[in-house]
Each structure stands twice: as C-alpha cells, then as structure tokens.
Computed example of a mutant assay.
Amino acid sequence: MKRLLLTTSILAAGCWAMPHAYADRPATPAERQAAGFDDPAIPYMIREMPAARSHMPRSPKGIPGSKFQTRLGAAFLGRTSDYTFGFAPPPSTGCDSGTERFATAAFDLPQGARIHYLDVFAFDANASDDMLVFLQQVCQDLGSLDPPVVTQLGNTTTSGSAGNALVTLDFSAAPIEVNRYTCHYLVRVNLAYPSGACTTSIGLDKARIQYTNAGN
C-alpha cells in the first residue's frame, strides 16, 4: 500500500472570492523549487485546507448520472523542454537524464464546479526518489498587468510505492469551487523528487479530477 503525504491548500490574491476564508502564505524557496517555480516574480502561494473526510462516498468511475463527473487531464507537457515517452511500463510518461523533469496538464472544468478528488495513476520503482504531484490554481484578473498568482491547492507523493500506484488528493472536506473566468486549474508533476535526477523508474500514466456541478 502507498503512504500518502497530503498537504492541501487554495488561493487568495487576484482571484474571484472563494466561499472559505483560508489564510494563504507565500511558499518557501524549497516549496517553490519542488513545484518548479524558480522565477521569484511569479507569486506562489500555499493554502492549508481542512483534513479530508474519509467517509464521503464516490463513484470510482465517475459515470454520468452518478454524484461525480470526471475530467481527464489534457496531454502532459514539459515545463521548459521535451521529455521522453514510452519507457517501461508503457504507456507511462517520464523523464530521462538531461530532460525536463516537470510535466503539466490543464483541466477544463465548468464554472462553479466543485472539485472533490484528484486521482493520479503512476509507476514508481525508484527506491530513493518519488513522483510529487500538485494541483494548482493560476489566477489573473481580466486586464491586469500583474503576473498571475499561482496557488498550490494540494500535493501528494508516491512515497512508499513499489510499482503501480494510485495517489489521491481528497478535497471533500472543503471542495474547491472553480472560477473559470479568471483562473486555470493545472496538475503539475515533479518526476524526480527530491534529487532532481531523472530515471526511467518513475512514470506518469494519467490524472483525473472528480467534481460535482454547481450547486451540488
């Protein structure tokens, strides 16, 4: 079984008002580096969230008509350069020595939707490094000349994994309300944490968000 390291967070500055008044804090240099935001001009915030509610039922498949709907992430792209594809076990995506170790996918979600869960399917056969997963919200007011504010909504890791893995971020205690007018929602994966040395023993298969529609 996997040991999940869960820290949940959300956004404040420059964004549509959220229903929960949580206090944000600037990320530490180590947190910025782990998430791949090296440019100090980009505000990177952390918001601590309530603990998950393990009793809340959900449909694992998110089929139409069930309580939850499902979105799969668009194709994962490297942050600054290409990264390798198709190493064992295929069709996982990973990074090799000298290539980009961050992969990011965007999610297109309905306005007012409430994010309850993020599931990431992975492969981790590395004894020392893990795959570190973030759900991020990137917001910029319309017409603003300021840089967008990036907020870490949560993170988890494949620590303790041996082979195929499913890691989950559980926001059911305080679902994240989607503001698609001034914000974007991204899953970013660090494929070589903490050393930063890419190997073919860590792979990313896919990510999915399970959500309820506005008002549910």
Rank of each mutant, 00 (worst) to 15 (best):
M1C: 01
L4R: 06
L5M: 05
L5D: 12
T7F: 12
A12I: 03
G14Y: 13
C15F: 00
M18N: 07
P19W: 09
P19A: 11
H20S: 04
D24P: 05
R25L: 02
P26L: 03
T28K: 01
P29I: 08
P29N: 03
E31L: 01
E31D: 00
Q33Y: 05
A35Q: 04
A35C: 10
G36F: 05
F37R: 09
F37Q: 11
F37T: 01
D38T: 04
D38L: 10
D38E: 08
P40T: 09
A41P: 12
I42G: 10
Y44R: 14
M45F: 11
I46P: 06
E48F: 08
E48Q: 12
M49P: 02
P50A: 01
A52K: 06
R53H: 08
S54D: 15
H55A: 15
S59W: 13
P60L: 03
G62F: 01
I63E: 14
P64S: 11
G65D: 09
S66L: 05
Q69H: 13
Q69S: 14
A75F: 10
L77S: 04
L77V: 13
R79H: 15
S81T: 14
D82A: 08
D82I: 01
P89C: 04
P91I: 04
S92Y: 08
G94R: 12
C95L: 02
R101W: 11
F102Q: 07
A105M: 05
A106S: 08
A106R: 08
F107N: 07
F107M: 03
D108V: 12
P110Y: 00
P110K: 01
Q111P: 15
Q111C: 09
Q111S: 15
G112R: 08
I115C: 09
H116I: 00
L118K: 00
L118Q: 02
D119K: 05
F121H: 10
D124W: 00
A127F: 06
D130A: 15
M131Q: 08
M131R: 08
M131K: 03
L132V: 03
L132P: 00
V133G: 03
Q140Y: 11
D141F: 15
L142G: 13
G143Q: 12
L145R: 14
D146I: 01
P148E: 00
V149Y: 15
V150T: 14
V150F: 04
T151V: 02
T151L: 07
N155P: 06
T156W: 00
T158F: 00
T158H: 01
T158S: 12
T158Y: 06
G160K: 01
S161R: 09
G163W: 06
G163E: 12
N164E: 11
V167C: 01
T168C: 10
T168V: 10
T168I: 05
L169V: 10
F171Y: 00
F171S: 00
S172W: 03
A173I: 00
A174S: 06
V178Q: 15
Y181E: 14
Y181R: 14
Y181V: 11
C183L: 13
L186V: 10
L186I: 07
V187R: 11
R188A: 05
V189L: 11
N190M: 06
A192M: 10
S195I: 09
G196N: 11
T200E: 10
T200F: 05
L204F: 13
D205F: 15
D205C: 06
D205A: 14
K206G: 07
K206Y: 14
K206I: 06
R208G: 11
I209R: 03
I209Q: 11
Q210C: 03
Q210R: 02
Y211R: 12
G215P: 05
G215M: 02
G215F: 10
